[in-house]
Amino acid sequence: MSQRYEIRFSGAGGQGLITAGIILAEAASIIEGKSAVQSQSYGPEARGGASKSEVIISDAPIDYPKATIVDACLAMTQEAADKYANGIKEGGLLLLDADYVQKTPVGNFKVYRLPIMRIAKVDVGREIVANVVALGAVVGMTGVVSREAAEEAVLRKVPEAFKELNKKAFNLGFEKGKELLN
């Protein structure tokens, strides 16, 4: 891993992408003991609109807390893809929701598609865990934190009754993400 690794989660407000960012930052900083900063930007709307959450992970202390050049970017909606799928580094990674993003952003990066919302709804059984499916896919594809650390961070975040659901969502996302690279 290079010294500074930058990940951007983007989608519609209310999709839980800020939570996905927080979980990833917890996995890196609290469980793995690296430096991590999570930040977000959002509009005045409580739901809808495009929202993004950025996580910087490094072995060294992090000064500038926002993205400079993104290593991996997730876009769950077309609006988010249009607005936030930029500043991705050459050879970097862009993961799109296969059903909700039709127009693919153009750039010198690798584009992958995964029906994240559909996996959450059909395979896991609840659309609400799409953010955890997405997190699993990003961890599976980037290896920025270990699978164990990320899973533990997910489980720490959710109430007892939803642990199995989220575990399933994370692991399915992780496997599907890894498969995309083959």
Binding site: A36, S39, P65
Partner: peptide, 9 residues
Amino acid sequence: EIVGHMRER
């Protein structure tokens, strides 16, 4: 707002 809303250890 940046420091107020960002998360760090």
